[in-house]
Design a protein around this nucleic acid. Structure first.
Length: 885
RNA sequence: GGACGGUUAGCUCAGUUGGUUAGAGCUACUGGUUUACACCCAGUGGGUCGUAGGUUCGAGUCCUACACCGUCUACCA
C-alpha cells in the first residue's frame, strides 16, 4: 500500500468520484419500497451561470439528499432549467443589437431559432458548474420548462383555468417595461427609494379669470394626459371651485372639469390632484368612477406620442424637463422641491416601469383559502417558522396575476381569434381544427406561469402510463423545498396553489407539493452588501472550488449558514473548510501509518475485531461514548435543518476529541486497538459525507472501512448503541472523569507555559493531592499519561514543595513547579486576585442559600448545584490561602 | 405607514422550557517541529449580552418603551 500524500489535493479525487458516481448510477432514483425522499431543485435560468446563492441552495439540498440516502431512503432529486422568458430574450436581443439587427426585423420564427441556438450553446454551463460542486441529483430526470411534455402541461394549465373561469382578458393599467416592451406582474416590479422633485404648478380656472388652482406632481410629463383635477369633497379651500373647469396649459382648446373625490388626501401637496387615468393606478380608478376619458400620451417605448404635443417624440425623462421649462416660461410653475419617494423599477431591465393601459390576460388565483389552510394546519411547514406570517399576509392581499407578456420567447398563449370575427375565440392545447381561419394570440406567458407547475411537470403529471403514474405517486410530494425567500411569492406560494388546484381529486393534505419549506438566508459580502454583478463583489464559485476544493467550499459555506439568517461571506471561512479537509486527510494518513489495514466487509467486522482485541482502555470507551453522543446530536440537528450546528459539532468532535486528545494519547500507549480508530472513522466519515462527499468517500475507500461506498453504508446508530450497552462502554461517569483529566492537563501545561517552560520536558512537579477528593485515585491511574501529555520528567508526592515555587490549585490537588529561579511576587499577586474572585462567588452563593425565598422557590437541582459549587470554591480558596500564608 | 428579523469578545456567530461563575471559531499575543497534519500543536488575552424601565428568589433568555441596522410590503399624486 502506498502512503498517502501529506496534503489533500482535491482535483483528481473530485474527478474520480464524479466519474464513479455517474458510472455506477449512484443517484438515479429507484423505488425499492423504502420511504421516499424527493427534492425539486429550483431551476436556474437556462443560460445563467452559478452564483453564490445557487451554491448555498444546492449544497444544502445535497446535504439533505445524501443524508437521506445514508438513512436508507429512496431518494429523487430533480434538477432542471428554466427558459427565463425576459432574461433570455434580453440577452439574445443584446447580441442582435451588436450585429445591427433587432427581433422585429428577423421575424418571430427566425428570432426564436436564434434564441434556441443560444440556449443550446449555454444550456450545459450551469449544469456542469453544479456537477463540480458535487450535487447528487438525478440527471435522468432533468427537466427544461420548454420540453414538449412540460410545455403541454403549461398549456393544459392555462386551458383548465380558462374553462374553470379563473383566466380572463381585460384592459387594465399594467406595469409596463419600456425597455423590454412588455407587461410585468406586480412581483417583477421592484420599488426603489428615489430622489426626485415634487413640482407645484397652477391651472387657470376658466370660469373665474385670474383664479388659479395649484397642483403638486412628480410626473409633469403626463400633463397632456390630464382629464380632470380632483379635490377632496370636504376641503373648504376648494368648495367654490368644484364643478368648474381648468384650462390645460399646452392645449388652448382643452378645458377639464374640477371634480371631488374622497381618494384625495387634503394633507398632501396642495390638496389638489391632477387626474391622468391612462398613466397612474389611482387616477385610473378615479377615471372609471367619474366616467372620464383616457388619454394616453406615452407610447410603448416611453416616448411622448401625438397626444402629447408639443412634446411629441421626446423620451419621458426628457419631456419632464421640457414640460417644466415650458411651465416656467408660461409663469405657471409655482414651486420645485426635492422629494424622495419609491419608484417601481423593472426587475430585469432596471428602468422605471410605466403604468400603461393595455389589454392583457389575468389569472384570478384559485384555492387561496386552501393555500392558507395547508400552512395553518402545518401540512406545509416553514423553516424558520416565522415565514408563515409573510406567506399568509401575501395570500390575504392577493391580486390578480397578469400573465401575458409581449415577448416571443416562451409558451405562447393557447388562444386563437377567428379571422372573420375577432370576438370569436378558441382556447385549447392543440389549437383549432382549421388553423387557416384563425390567428393565435401573439403573446407568451409569464415564465412563472410555467415554473409554478414545477413539482407537477417534472413528474409528468399528465402522463397516464401506469408506470409514470406509479412513479408520481411514489415520489410526490417532495419532502422539502429549499429556496431563497426572495421568490416566496413568485414561485413557492404559486406552486402550492397550482398543486392544490390541479390535483383536486385528492384530499387536501395530499395535494401539497412539498411538506417543508426551508428558506435560506441571502449571501452577502463581508461588509454586508448584497452580492451583485454591478458591485463586482460576487466571487465566481468555480474559482473558489479551484482554490479550496469543492469539499472545502461546502464545509466552509455551511459552517456559516445558520437557519434563515443572512450570511456574511468571507473567504476566511472557506480556508477553514479547506484546513479541516486537510486535517481529516492527515488523521487518516496517520491511521494508515500505524499499519494493519485489513479490508472490512461491514460494521460488524470492525466490532468483532474490537471484541477480539479484548479489554478497551478508558480512553477508548470515552472516545466511543463521545462518538455516540455526537451521532445522536447530529441526527437531531439535521432533522431541524441546523446545518451549521451539525458541521460544527463534527469538526469539534473530530479535532478536539479524536485528533488532539485520543490520537495524542495513542502515541504514548504501547498496546492500542486500531479497530477503535476504524470504528470512529467509519462513523465520522459517514456523518461528514453529506457535507464533504469527495474526501469522505475517498478516505473511506482508502482505509477499506466497508465493502461499499458511504452512500450505501446505512446509518447504524441503533446497532452501535446496543453494542455499547452490551459492553458497558457508555457511561456518563467516564466522560466526566476524562473531561476532568483534560482540564488538569490544560492547567498543568498553562503552569509550565506561564513560566516559560512550555516545551521543556525536563521538568519536575510536586503535588499535594486533595485528600478528600475522588480524584486522588484517578491521579494515580493516569500519572504516566499526565507526565507525557504535559511534558514532565517527574510528577510525584514524594518531592516536597518549597516556598516560592510556582503552583496551581486544581480540584485534584495543588501542583508545584520545581524550579530554581522563582517568581514569587507575580504568583502571589495572581493568587490574591484569584482568592478575591472566589470570595465573591462564595459570598454570592452563601447569600443565595441564606435567602428563604430562593430556598423555597428554586428547584432542588439548582440548590444542590449551588451548594456543590460553594464547596468547591471554598476548598479551592482555602488551598490558595495556605499557599500565601 | 405596516409586517418581520437583528443588536452578545476586535470580527463572524452559538446560547433550547428563565437556574450555578455567558461559549465557539477566526484575529491578536506568547511558546513550540515529539509516530500524521504549520492548511499543525500548546498557552494567554479579550464581553457590565443596544439603551431605559418592569416581572421574578433568580433575566442574555419573559414583558413594555426607545434607539440603531436590515429585509419584505404598501406607497400621498
Amino acid at each position: 500500500m502506498v502512503l498517502m500524500e501529506k496534503t489533500y489535493s482535491p482535483e483528481d479525487i473530485e474527478k474520480k468520484w464524479n466519474k464513479y458516481w455517474q458510472e455506477a448510477h449512484c443517484f438515479e432514483a429507484k423505488h425499492n419500497g423504502k420511504p421516499t425522499f424527493t427534492l425539486f431543485m429550483p431551476p436556474p435560468n437556462v443560460t445563467g451561470i452559478l452564483h453564490m446563492g445557487h451554491m448555498l441552495n444546492d449544497v444544502i439540498q445535497d446535504v439533505l439528499c445524501r443524508w437521506a440516502r445514508i438513512q436508507g431512503k429512496d431518494v429523487l432529486w430533480i434538477p432542471g432549467t428554466d427558459h427565463a422568458g425576459i432574461a433570455t430574450q434580453n440577452k439574445v436581443e443584446k447580441v442582435l443589437k451588436k450585429e445591427g439587427l433587432f427581433r422585429q426585423k428577423l421575424g418571430r420564427k427566425a428570432f426564436i431559432e436564434r434564441v434556441q441556438e443560444w440556449v443550446k450553446e449555454h444550456k450545459h454551463i450551469i449544469g456542469d458548474q453544479m456537477k463540480s460542486l458535487g450535487v447528487s441529483c438525478d440527471w435522468n430526470h432533468s427537466t427544461y420548462t420548454l420540453d414538449p411534455n412540460y410545455s403541454r402541461g403549461v398549456l393544459t394549465a392555462f386551458v383548465k383555468l380558462y374553462e374553470r373561469g379563473y383566466i380572463y382578458k381585460g384592459k387594465r393599467l399594467v406595469n409596463w417595461c419600456p425597455v423590454s416592451q412588455t407587461a410585468l406582474s406586480d412581483e417583477e416590479v421592484i420599488m426603489k427609494q428615489t430622489s426626485a422633485f415634487l413640482y407645484t404648478f397652477r391651472y387657470a380656472v376658466v370660469e373665474k379669470p385670474g383664479t388659479f388652482i395649484n397642483i403638486a406632481t412628480t410626473r409633469p410629463e403626463t400633463i397632456m394626459g390630464d382629464v380632470a383635477l380632483a379635490v377632496h369633497p370636504q376641503d373648504t379651500r376648494y368648495q367654490t371651485l368644484i364643478g368648474l373647469h381648468a384650462q390645460c396649459p399646452f392645449d388652448a382648446s382643452r378645458v377639464i372639469p374640477i371634480i371631488a373625490d374622497e381618494v384625495v388626501d387634503r394633507e398632501f401637496g396642495t390638496g389638489a390632484l391632477k387626474i391622468t387615468p391612462a398613466h397612474d393606478p389611482i387616477d385610473f380608478d378615479v377615471g372609471q368612477r367619474h366616467h372620464l376619458p383616457f388619454i394616453e400620451v406615452l407610447d410603448e417605448r416611453g416616448i411622448v406620442n401625438a397626444h402629447g404635443a408639443p412634446f411629441e417624440g421626446m423620451d419621458r425623462l426628457q419631456a419632464r424637463k421640457a414640460v417644466i421649462e415650458a411651465l416656467r416660461e408660461k409663469n405657471l410653475l409655482v414651486e420645485e422641491k426635492p422629494y424622495d419617494h419609491a419608484v417601481g423599477y423593472s426587475e430585469r431591465a432596471d428602468v422605471p416601469i410605466e403604468p400603461r393601459l393595455s389589454e392583457q390576460w389575468f389569472v384570478r388565483y384559485p384555492k387561496v383559502e386552501e393555500a392558507k389552510q395547508v400552512a395553518e394546519k402545518f401540512f406545509v411547514k416553514f423553516w424558520p417558522q416565522r415565514w408563515i406570517k409573510t406567506y399568509l399576509h401575501w395570500l390575504e392581499n392577493i391580486q390578480d396575476w397578469c400573465i401575458s407578456r409581449q415577448l416571443w420567447w416562451g409558451h405562447r398563449i393557447p388562444v386563437w381569434y377567428h379571422k372573420a370575427d375577432k370576438s370569436i375565440i378558441h382556447v385549447s392545447v392543440d389549437g383549432p381544427q382549421d388553423p387557416e381561419n384563425w390567428e393565435q394570440d401573439p403573446d407568451v406567458m409569464d415564465t412563472w406561469f410555467s415554473s409554478w407547475l414545477w413539482p407537477l411537470g417534472t413528474l409528468n403529471w399528465l402522463d397516464n402510463k401506469p408506470e409514470t403514474k406509479q412513479f408520481f405517486n411514489d415520489f410526490f410530494p417532495a419532502n422539502t423545498l429549499v429556496s431563497g425567500p426572495d421568490i416566496l411569492f413568485f414561485w413557492i406560494t404559486r406552486m402550492i396553489i397550482a398543486s392544490l388546484e390541479f390535483l383536486d381529486d385528492r384530499p387536501l393534505e395530499q395535494r401539497i407539493p412539498f411538506k417543508n419549506i426551508y428558506l435560506t438566508g441571502i449571501v452577502r459580502d463581508s461588509i454586508g452588501r448584497k452580492m451583485s454583478k454591478s458591485l463586482g463583489n460576487s466571487p465566481d464559485p468555480l474559482d473558489l472550488i479551484k482554490k479550496f476544493g469543492a469539499d472545502g467550499v461546502r464545509v466552509g459555506l455551511l459552517s456559516i449558514a445558520p437557519q434563515g439568517q443572512d450570511i456574511r461571506f468571507d473567504e476566511r471561512f472557506l480556508i477553514q473548510g479547506r484546513n479541516f479537509c486537510t486535517k481529516l486527510w492527515n488523521a487518516c494518513r496517520f491511521r494508515q501509518m500505524q499499519g494493519d489495514i485489513i479490508p472490512y466487509r461491514n460494521l460488524n467486522d470492525i466490532l468483532n475485531k474490537i471484541e477480539h482485541f479484548g479489554h478497551l482502555s478508558i480512553y477508548d470507551t470515552h472516545l466511543l461514548s463521545i462518538l455516540l453522543k455526537t451521532m445522536a446530536d447530529y441526527e437531531k440537528f439535521l432533522e431541524k435543518y441546523e446545518f451549521s450546528a451539525a458541521i460544527k459539532l463534527l469538526q469539534q468532535c473530530f479535532k478536539n476529541i479524536f485528533c488532539d486528545w485520543y490520537l495524542e494519547i495513542q502515541k504514548h500507549q504501547t498496546h492500542t486497538c486500531l479497530a477503535v480508530q476504524d470504528l470512529f472513522l467509519t462513523q465520522m466519515l459517514t456523518m461528514l459525507e453529506p457535507y464533504a462527499p469527495y474526501i469522505s468517500e475517498e478516505l473511506y475507500a482508502q482505509l477499506h472501512l466497508n465493502d461499499c461506498i458511504i452512500q450505501e453504508s446505512g446509518w447504524n446508530i441503533n446497532l452501535l448503541k446496543q453494542w455499547a450497552q452490551a459492553h458497558k462502554s457508555y457511561t456518563e461517569n467516564e466522560i466526566e472523569t476524562i473531561e476532568q483529566l483534560r482540564n488538569l492537563v490544560s492547567e498543568l501545561r498553562a503552569l509550565k507555559s506561564k513560566h516559560g517552560l512550555a516545551s521543556d520536558k525536563n521538568v519536575t512537579m510536586a503535588v499535594v493531592l486533595e485528600t478528600k477528593g475522588k480524584y486522588t485515585e484517578y491521579f494515580h491511574q493516569h500519572t504516566e499519561l499526565i507526565k507525557k501529555l504535559v511534558g514532565l520528567k517527574q510528577i510525584d508526592e514524594e518531592t516536597k514543595p518549597k516556598e516560592g515555587m510556582p503552583k496551581t490549585v486544581t480540584l485534584w490537588g495543588t501542583f508545584f513547579l520545581v524550579i530554581d529561579q522563582t517568581s514569587t511576587q507575580d504568583d502571589t499577586d495572581a493568587i490574591k486576585r484569584e482568592i478575591e474572585l472566589l470570595t465573591k462567588h462564595i459570598q454570592s452563593a452563601e447569600q443565595k442559600l441564606a435567602n428563604e425565598r430562593f430556598m423555597s422557590h428554586a428547584p432542588e437541582a439548582v440548590i444542590v448545584g449551588v451548594k456543590k459549587l460553594l464547596e468547591d470554591n471554598i476548598q479551592k480558596r482555602d488551598a490558595l490561602k495556605k499557599l500565601i500564608m
